[in-house]
Simulated assay, not measured.
Amino acid sequence: MVEGSMGSGMETSLRYSSHYKNLRIHAKEKFPLDSKTLVQTHGEVEVGSKLPSLLAMSIRRFYPELSASIGVGLQFNSQDKFGYNIRVKKALLLKSNPMLHVNVKGRCNTDKDFKQKKAKSAIELAWSILDFQKDQDVRIKVGYDLLEKAPYFQIRENNWTLNADISGNWNIRFDL
């Protein structure tokens, strides 16, 4: 299972993190190009300053027969300014339990001159629990960032998501 929907429709969320320490409104829109390819746009506004903190666009290609995806894009953010990114993800399905799978993923952000700014490579175990309680789905991820050499986890319940790592970094998201 590779996360991501090919359907279009604006997705909005409220986000707060230990890193930014301010509330942000995030919006994402997906525009299908064909049955396996989409253009994805993101934007984020800091509530206090009312200024954009992120503008991004990427093209993502899904390979359902491989349970994999790849994306390339460009972004502008208030910290690093303009840059490019590439991301890949491969899901390894466990036949013993279709709701349990291993994700292998990587991401690299560069500046406008293609000099690496930030990279992430991780392996994670993801467990989706449908109808944990009536009308409540839960997803639990436990992962290990191979470059930072740090474990992390994610708990998602319907509209709420909490991410945290061993270094004390965390963020919370509420999907509207």
Rank of each mutant, 00 (worst) to 15 (best):
Y84P: 02
N85Q: 14
I86S: 05
R87E: 10
R87C: 06
R87H: 09
V88L: 11
V88P: 00
V88K: 00
V88D: 02
K89V: 08
K89P: 03
K90N: 05
K90Q: 15
A91I: 05
A91D: 09
A91R: 03
A91G: 12
L92M: 12
L92E: 12
L92N: 13
L93G: 08
L94P: 06
L94C: 10
K95N: 14
K95P: 01
S96C: 09
N97I: 04
M99F: 12
M99W: 11
L100C: 07
N103S: 10
N103P: 00
V104W: 01
V104Q: 03
V104H: 02
G106P: 03
G106E: 07
R107T: 08
R107G: 03
R107E: 12
R107V: 06
C108L: 10
N109L: 11
N109S: 10
N109R: 11
T110N: 12
D111F: 06
D111W: 05
D111Q: 09
K112G: 03
D113L: 12
F114C: 05
K115T: 14
K115C: 10
K115L: 14
Q116D: 09
Q116Y: 06
K117M: 11
K118P: 00
K118I: 09
K118L: 13
A119I: 01
A119L: 01
A119R: 06
K120M: 15
K120C: 11
K120G: 15
A122Y: 02
A122N: 08
I123A: 05
I123S: 03
I123E: 00
E124G: 04
E124R: 01
L125E: 05
L125Y: 07
A126T: 09
A126S: 13
A126D: 04
A126F: 01
W127E: 04
W127T: 00
W127D: 04
S128C: 05
S128P: 02
I129D: 03
I129E: 06
L130C: 07
L130Y: 13
L130A: 11
L130E: 14
D131H: 08
D131G: 04
F132M: 06
Q133E: 07
Q133F: 02
K134I: 02
K134S: 06
K134D: 03
D135T: 02
